[in-house]
Nucleic acid binder design. Structure first.
Lengths: 349, 349
DNA sequence: CTGAAAGCGCTTACAG
DNA sequence: CTGAAAGCGCTTACAG
């Protein structure tokens, strides 16, 4: 125990504690400058002489100094964090979005806080709350419910668009995509075209469904309620398979099917295989999202090219823009153009 | 501008600033208690009377108070963060590990900081540094190089094992897996069995390769250098395809191939298709990692069942254990048991 | 060019 | 049961 009045430096317990991580004060003492000078030197401030900078840097290296970002964030009132919340990080689409966003954010000096909600509204709410408590500078949100968020920080919605909320929205051009798919099937001469989609709770669900009906109408094909089947909330392959089985059980069977996602398509293909149907001979099938290695499936599937990573990159760029320039005016809405990859499941080749 | 000596409360500029986020001091003032009392009340400390707690909570709600975790972390000297660094979050394996780890960590009250390195050693080093600066409590690391890390915090290695480092290692039972695969092909009567693997720089690369040679030896099959081909550093399907083409070009062609990953297998299958070979008639193929919807491939592939999420859950549990109980003694090594999923590419069915 | 001082928003001994 | 005070590790006006 140090006697009162004794200089603190000589007996600083921090030096003796083996587990102590050096602080800026330690560096400053070691370099014989004030903490403020050490701080500026490590920031390479123009206020500091070259010689001093060298001394401070040497001291920092010698001590193995690692700046404490927590303290820095508290002081500067900016964590340099952007949160991203996704329904299921295990799903390829979301993990690729996260990847794209992470790269853009990192090169701008931001850290990304990934929150996985498992599609539970309660977890989404909690995730948002946690992000706010961590004082993130902005949020990238693929909401799986209609969470009404009071934007205390800029928000960019992706995948599931929330019109006129946040600073921006990013999603695929759903209507164009469905049009491409249906047009192609019509080009093959199909007129009994069915649709296996996701529930309309999400943007992708509602827009794709709506577009399917609209495009059929444009072609003068009568709407057939039996031909529209919706899968479960997670767009599972199981529900895609179930939908296909229902379609196959119909008296007046469709000759072609559009699925609104890769998982739905995969489930539908399994169902066809189990029913001993040959694609595309007995049934044509095209899908919105191209499955991973869709060219290796039996048959290779005709689908829309993936640009998942770009969605993440775009969303990140938009939040960065809002952080740097301030969010002004109405939210931007960005739609990623789609592109048809023609393979064999449609009847081509 | 407030006159000196005037009570601060009446003119507190924070109240007038519209963008000000309420602090604990605001809550305390509103509830007419000391900040320390407010802090304890919100922590539901037994020291505080029920009536006071109620008042404080009401004030917090009224003001829309969100505790500042940055300040909390600085004060308690624990960020309640665990970092996880992966070579490529866009790859299914890693995203599922992240998912598993995240769920375990979250239910233990930790936040997860995901770092994506794109397999660049420099980015991995930077990621580790960043994590340390954020004062994470522990790290989950799938290193893509032999990063020698001085563990200032507990580390659990996964995927790529670093023996006798960190507090624990988690990986698939690589040797058992390869044995299962080769044994099955031998059971089909194959004796000319080739191997398409990843480079031995990683645990999965070296252990699987080594096991392949050992199992061949166990079966009394002569080692054939031409039959062993290694893909590129990312185990790309392109390199798997190239390897398969080399194999097909051999004078004394193999009759069966073991691939060390799903991507390698997929590339190899593409190469076979391009060469107009029929699987499994012209060539049997089995794979270590089961591709996504491997049952829908042409032909359905025989492979080892995936337990990626479990690897993440295990790694997270191990780091949690180390954080709570302290890391004692030699690092634990956990090997996830493997399981053969028999389909048709091997020649069955 | 350098330093002393204040303060970011919490928590936690310590005292009552 | 409650409060006053110190301090986590930084940064940044302010003064010299």
């Amino acid at each position: 125990v140090p006697a009162d009045g004794q200089p603190a430096i000589a007996v600083d317990p921090r030096i003796t504690q083996s587990k102590h991580r050096p602080t800026l004060v330690d560096v400053a003492q070691s370099a014989k400058v004030a903490p403020s000078t050490a701080s500026r030197a490590l920031q390479d401030s123009p206020m500091i002489s070259a010689a001093t900078k060298r001394r401070v840097r040497a001291a920092a290296r010698r001590l193995g100094y690692e700046p404490n970002r927590i303290a820095r964030s508290l002081r500067t009132r900016s964590a340099n964090f952007v949160g991203i919340v996704v329904p299921d990080i295990g799903v390829g689409f979301y993990s690729r979005v996260v990847k794209g966003a992470g790269n853009v954010l990192e090169s701008a000096g931001y850290q990304m806080l990934v929150m996985n909600t498992e599609r539970q509204p309660s977890r989404e709410k909690a995730a948002l709350q946690t992000l706010l408590e961590h004082r993130v500078d902005g949020i990238l949100l693929a909401t799986s419910g209609a969470t009404e968020v009071e934007p205390r920080v800029p928000i960019v919605f992706f995948d599931n668009v929330v019109p006129s909320a946040g600073v921006a929205n990013v999603a695929y051009a759903n209507r164009d995509g469905i049009a491409l798919l249906v047009d192609h099937l019509v080009g093959h001469g199909h007129s009994r075209i069915a649709y296996i989609g996701g529930p309309p709770a999400s943007t992708s669900g509602s827009e794709r469904l709506e577009a399917f009906r609209a495009v059929l109408d444009r072609h003068g094909l009568p709407p057939e309620d039996d031909y529209v089947r919706l899968g479960d909330a997670v767009w599972s392959s199981q529900s895609g398979g179930a939908a296909m089985r229902e379609l196959l059980g119909l008296a007046h069977r469709p000759t072609a099917v559009v699925t609104a996602s890769d998982t739905l398509a995969l489930g539908a293909m399994q169902a066809c295989r189990q029913a001993d149907l040959r694609l595309p001979r007995d049934m044509a099938l095209v899908s919105f999202d191209d499955p991973f290695f869709g060219d290796l499936l039996d048959p290779p599937i005709t689908a829309l090219a993936r640009k998942d990573r770009e969605i993440g990159e775009l969303a990140a760029s938009l939040i960065l823009h809002a952080l740097e320039c301030g969010s002004s005016g109405a939210p931007t809405e960005v739609r990623l153009p789609v592109e048809l990859v023609v393979r064999k499941s449609c009847g081509c080749g």
